[in-house]
Measured scan of single mutants.
Amino acid sequence: NRRVIAMPSVRKYAREKGVDIRLVQGTGKNGRVLKEDIDAWLAG
């Protein structure tokens, strides 16, 4: 149960899109989840 590193704005964006942020692979520094990662996850 790893802790997800993401800015609050990215967490909010994921919530609005209905994405469980824990399932998204972060590509930022130290595995940080970026807004682009959410978009990529939604695109498949």
Rank of each mutant, 00 (worst) to 15 (best):
S9H: 14
A43Q: 12
N1C: 09
K17P: 00
S9Y: 12
K12G: 04
G26V: 03
L23P: 02
G18I: 04
I5S: 07
R3Q: 13
R3W: 04
R15N: 09
A14F: 01
V10Q: 02
T27I: 03
A43M: 14
G31R: 08
R2C: 12
P8I: 10
W41T: 05
G26N: 03
S9M: 11
M7P: 11
Y13E: 03
M7S: 15
G44W: 14
I21T: 03
V4D: 04
N1M: 04
A43N: 12
Q25W: 15
A14M: 01
I21Q: 01
K17V: 12
G18C: 11
V10S: 03
E16G: 10
E36Q: 15
D20N: 11
R3Y: 03
R2D: 15
E16C: 09
V4T: 05
V4E: 04
L23T: 10
L34D: 06
V10A: 05
K35N: 06
Q25I: 14
G28Y: 02
R22I: 08
G28P: 01
G28D: 04
V19Q: 01
L42S: 07
D20V: 05
A14I: 01
T27P: 02
N1H: 11
R32W: 09
K35G: 04
K35A: 08
A40V: 12
I38H: 00
W41E: 04
N1S: 13
R22V: 08
R32L: 08
L23I: 12
N30G: 13
E16H: 11
K29T: 11
V24K: 01
V10G: 01
Q25M: 14
I5P: 05
L42C: 08
P8R: 15
R3P: 15
I21S: 02
R32F: 07
R32S: 10
L42P: 04
V24L: 09
I38A: 01
V33E: 00
R15H: 11
A6E: 02
L23A: 11
V33G: 00
L23W: 11
K29F: 12
A40L: 13
S9I: 11
W41Q: 05
R2G: 15
S9F: 10
A6Y: 03
I5Y: 05
A40E: 11
G18D: 09
G28E: 03
L34P: 00
V4R: 04
K35M: 11
K29P: 11
K29A: 11
W41S: 04
I21W: 07
L23F: 12
N30S: 12
D39F: 05
G18Y: 09
G31W: 06
S9D: 09
R32H: 08
V19C: 08
Q25D: 12
E16M: 14
I38N: 00
S9T: 09
T27Y: 04
N1A: 12
A40T: 13
Y13G: 01
G44R: 15
V33P: 02
V4S: 04
D39P: 01
W41M: 06
R2K: 15
K12N: 08
I38Q: 00
V33W: 01
D37V: 00
D20K: 06
K17F: 08
R3A: 10
V4A: 05
K29C: 08
I38F: 00
I5H: 05
G18E: 08
D37F: 00
D20Y: 06
R11H: 08
K12H: 07
G31S: 08
E36T: 15
K29M: 11
G18N: 12
A43L: 13
P8T: 08
N30H: 13
A14D: 00
A43E: 12
E36K: 15
Y13N: 02
G26L: 02
Q25Y: 15
M7Y: 15
A6V: 05
M7H: 15
N30F: 14
T27V: 03
R11S: 04
P8D: 06
G18V: 05
D39S: 05
V33C: 05
A14W: 02
I38K: 00
A43W: 12
Q25T: 14
S9L: 10
I5Q: 06
Y13Q: 03
R22D: 07
G28Q: 03
R15L: 11
D20M: 07
R15P: 00
G28A: 06
D37K: 00
A14K: 00
D37R: 00
R22C: 10
E36V: 14
V19H: 01
G44M: 15
G28R: 02
N1P: 15
G26C: 03
G31I: 02
R11W: 14
G44P: 09
I5T: 07
A14N: 00
I5D: 06
G31M: 08
T27S: 13
V19S: 01
L34S: 09
A14T: 02
K17N: 12
M7F: 15
T27D: 02
R11Y: 07
Y13H: 07
T27K: 06
Y13I: 04
D20P: 09
V4M: 04
L42I: 14
L23N: 10
L23C: 07
W41R: 04
M7V: 10
G31H: 09
R2A: 07
E36L: 15
I38W: 00
R11N: 03
N30M: 13
E16F: 14
I5M: 04
K29G: 08
I5V: 12
E16A: 14
Q25R: 14
K29R: 13
K35Y: 06
Q25V: 14
V19A: 05
R11T: 04
D37S: 02
S9A: 15
V10T: 07
I5F: 05
L23E: 10
R2I: 15
Y13K: 02
V19K: 00
T27Q: 06
R32Y: 08
K17S: 10
R2F: 05
L42Y: 07
R22Q: 11
R3M: 06
D37L: 00
E16N: 11
N30Y: 14
A40G: 10
G44K: 14
R11E: 04
R2P: 11
A40H: 12
D39A: 05
D20L: 07
R2T: 15
S9Q: 12
K29N: 10
Q25P: 14
G28S: 04
V24F: 03
G26Q: 03
V24N: 00
L42D: 05
G44I: 13
L23D: 09
L23G: 09
P8G: 09
